[in-house]
């Protein structure tokens, strides 16, 4: 195992979460808006070529936060657009994130079936 990489993923991932926390604490943005903001930010930063270096450096630290979801979407869409044209721009994003989205629907549904919410103490 590459310990340096693990350490960097911790630092970069933690750092991205701190940006989120600053937004919540200082601007009163709700968590739902934070999620939307981060995924959109990830898409545009990737398009501008600014997110890729962060992924190379931080690995999962950059891909696990929702900005990384945006990175996968944009990377897939741009790559497919270059290969297949307009059709690729439409299919590329979801193709490259299909695993995550399908898992979210499937495990989300499964857990909702199996468990009941509990009152907070």
């Amino acid at each position: 195992m590459d310990w340096m990489k693990l350490f960097l993923s911790f630092i970069i991932g933690g750092g991205i979460c701190v940006i989120g926390q600053l937004l919540i604490s200082l601007t009163k943005l709700t968590p739902a808006r934070i999620l939307v903001l981060f995924v959109t930010l990830g898409v545009f930063l990737t398009a501008l070529g600014l997110y890729k270096p962060l992924v190379d450096l931080g690995g999962a630290g950059a891909t696990v936060p929702l900005t990384g979801f945006g990175y996968s979407l944009a990377k897939g869409a741009i790559k497919a657009a270059k290969e297949d044209g307009v059709l690729g721009a439409f299919t590329g994003g979801i193709k490259s994130t299909a695993g995550g989205i399908a898992a979210a629907v499937f495990f989300g549904y499964l857990n909702a079936l199996l468990f009941k919410p509990k009152t907070k103490k």
């Binding site: 919540i24 009163k28 968590p31 919410p117 509990k118 009152t119 907070k120």
Partner: peptide, 20 residues
């Protein structure tokens, strides 16, 4: 009732958010 009001006015109970 905490659990009926919470989901109507705020977030689902199991959402991992911190209260201001």
């Amino acid at each position: 009732h905490f659990s009926t009001a919470e989901r109507q006015y705020r977030y689902p109970l199991e959402m991992g958010t911190t209260n201001p």
